[in-house]
Simulated assay, not measured.
Amino acid sequence: MTRFGRLFRDGVTTFALLGLIALLALKMNNRPELIQTGSFYVVDGDTLAQDGDRLRLLGIDAPEYRQQCQRDHVGWACGEEARKALDKLMKTAPAECRGSEHDRYGRLLVTCKAGDVDINSAMVRSGMAVSYGGYAAEEAAARQARAGLWAGDFERPRDYRREEQAERARSGDPLAGLGDYLRRFVGWDR
């Protein structure tokens, strides 16, 4: 066999092997979509629980339950209100949540619908959550309408969590400070 023939054979074999590896990788990465229906417990404005499992609404970030916001220079419990808003939406019709990925805390990342209502979108559109990798158009509409959080001043939930972690670290809890450092080091800020 000539040198060109061997190179051609080796090249074809290499490409065939790479193609086979790519197909296997795609098959292994193909996660089935999980569907959960029934009644859900609303933990906060972007987290649900059902039968011991936690679900996080994909593409949104709502105020933490204890988070306070300002409206007309008066504090209001925006975190509690976000939880109430999600609870109300989840009860409008039988809810169905779908997702295939998990976040770093093991929560299933889901998009939920109650009837024809996209719950994730409705939370952002009502101003009770901000866009977090999705729903930018809904956030722009809520901001323009000065709905929910946008009617006053608020701290982004991500920033609020970061400050809470820093406060725990300053309070003398050495493990809280270590955990905060490790999360920043690894880049696990939500």
Rank of each mutant, 00 (worst) to 15 (best):
L55T: 03
L55V: 02
L55H: 05
R56W: 01
R56C: 02
R56H: 06
R56L: 01
L58P: 02
L58E: 02
L58N: 00
L58W: 05
L58V: 06
D61S: 10
A62R: 12
P63W: 09
E64P: 07
R66E: 15
Q68G: 05
Q68W: 14
C69D: 06
Q70Y: 12
Q70E: 15
R71I: 12
D72H: 13
H73M: 14
G75K: 12
G75A: 15
W76H: 14
A77H: 15
C78F: 11
E80Y: 09
E81F: 09
E81M: 11
A82R: 10
R83E: 03
K84D: 15
A85P: 02
A85W: 03
L86W: 03
L89R: 05
L89N: 08
L89M: 02
M90P: 08
M90N: 10
K91Y: 08
K91V: 05
T92L: 09
P94W: 09
P94E: 05
A95Y: 07
A95I: 03
A95K: 07
E96C: 05
C97I: 08
C97S: 08
S100C: 11
S100R: 12
S100H: 09
E101Y: 05
E101C: 07
E101G: 07
E101I: 03
D103Q: 06
R104Y: 06
Y105M: 00
G106C: 09
R107D: 10
L108Q: 06
L109A: 06
L109E: 02
V110K: 00
V110H: 03
T111A: 00
C112M: 12
C112Q: 02
K113Q: 14
K113Y: 14
A114K: 09
G115Y: 07
D116V: 10
D116Y: 04
V117R: 13
D118S: 10
D118P: 09
D118Q: 07
I119V: 15
I119M: 10
I119G: 00
N120I: 02
N120A: 00
N120E: 07
S121G: 07
S121Y: 09
S121K: 13
M123I: 08
M123H: 03
V124H: 11
R125D: 15
S126D: 09
G127W: 10
M128H: 11
A129L: 11
A129P: 10
A129T: 09
A129H: 13
V130A: 04
S131M: 04
S131A: 15
Y132P: 00
Y132F: 14
Y132D: 10
G133I: 01
G134T: 10
G134I: 06
Y135M: 08
Y135V: 03
Y135S: 04
A136C: 04
A136D: 15
A136K: 06
A137N: 11
E139R: 06
